[in-house]
């Protein structure tokens, strides 16, 4: 489904991703873990097409479509969804208006008619309920004055409405208390299906207690350095990331001696 091959990317002339490889099949949940500065957020931005992130090398395809050739909105319409770590506030644009525009854009791309305002309101209300957001959040400006937890739930609400093929959740657990964490996890779990995949980017294991991953990868210095099953997450939780440094030091020493 989503295939990332040898991805090298830079921001402001600084290379962050240095040969990232990731293959995600339909229905799979992959967790990406790793220390700060490893490139976790960068991966989400590069794949979703944020301005200022330069791809130097490599390929990203979604069901065979070359994502790197597409604008950010075209990637979204192709089925890619990024739940932001820090969702931006857009005062004056209501949540409802925003999501209707997004859903209609998606439908138009799929050759469908726009959804009627009435039907959409119903859908949006349901989505709100599912993530435990009061429905009057639909009338408020996008993320405007939302707490950290509300913003994260709002992201999941958008995911419910857009029904993407691949979801990248960028530290959707950061700053959440246990209740909010469960709401986020429930939202995600409710959307798990054989034809939808998830990439869960997280620093800690606790989100993975609620969203069970099929695979866990460790991202360090711009590439995947270790992959395993769900037990790897526990291992990381116990050991921390210090061992990565040692490994890197050893690697560097070997390179030098070679």
């Amino acid at each position: 489904m989503l295939s990332i091959k040898n991805l090298h990317a830079s921001v402001e002339d600084k290379t962050i991703l240095k040969g990232l490889d990731l293959e995600i099949k339909p229905g799979e949940v992959h967790a990406i873990m790793g220390p700060n500065g490893a490139g976790k957020s960068t991966m989400g931005y590069v794949v979703s097409g944020r301005e200022g992130y330069e791809v130097e090398e490599g390929a990203v395809t979604l069901n065979g479509v070359d994502l790197l050739e597409l604008e950010a909105e075209e990637r979204a319409r192709a089925g890619l969804f990024l739940a932001f770590q820090y969702p931006v506030e857009i005062p004056g644009v209501s949540n409802l208006e925003f999501m209707k525009a997004a859903v209609d854009a998606q439908r138009e791309a799929d050759g469908e008619e726009p959804v009627s305002s009435k039907d959409f309101l119903k859908l949006a209300r349901e989505a709100c309920k599912q993530v435990h957001l009061p429905v009057d959040f639909l009338k408020r400006g996008v993320n405007e004055g939302f707490s950290g937890g509300e913003k994260k739930r709002n992201e999941i609400m958008q995911m419910l409405l857009l029904k993407p093929k691949v979801c990248i959740l960028d530290e959707s657990d950061s700053g959440l208390d246990i209740d909010a964490l469960q709401v986020v996890a429930e939202g995600v779990n409710s959307q798990r299906s054989p034809d939808r995949s998830f990439i869960v980017v997280t620093h800690y294991q606790r989100l993975l207690d609620h969203i069970k991953p099929d695979f866990v990868h460790v991202l360090s210095d711009g590439k995947i350095v270790k992959s395993g099953d769900a037990s790897l997450a526990q291992e990381l939780e116990d050991q921390g990331y210090a061992w990565l440094k040692e490994q890197r030091a050893v690697g560097a020493a070997q390179e030098q001696s070679a």
Binding site: R50, A72, E73, A76, R77, P87, V142, L162
Partner: peptide, 12 residues
């Protein structure tokens, strides 16, 4: 803000 909207499929 532009990127956020685009990332939800809305044209530039």
């Amino acid at each position: 803000g532009l990127y956020y909207l685009q990332s939800r499929g809305i044209s530039r």
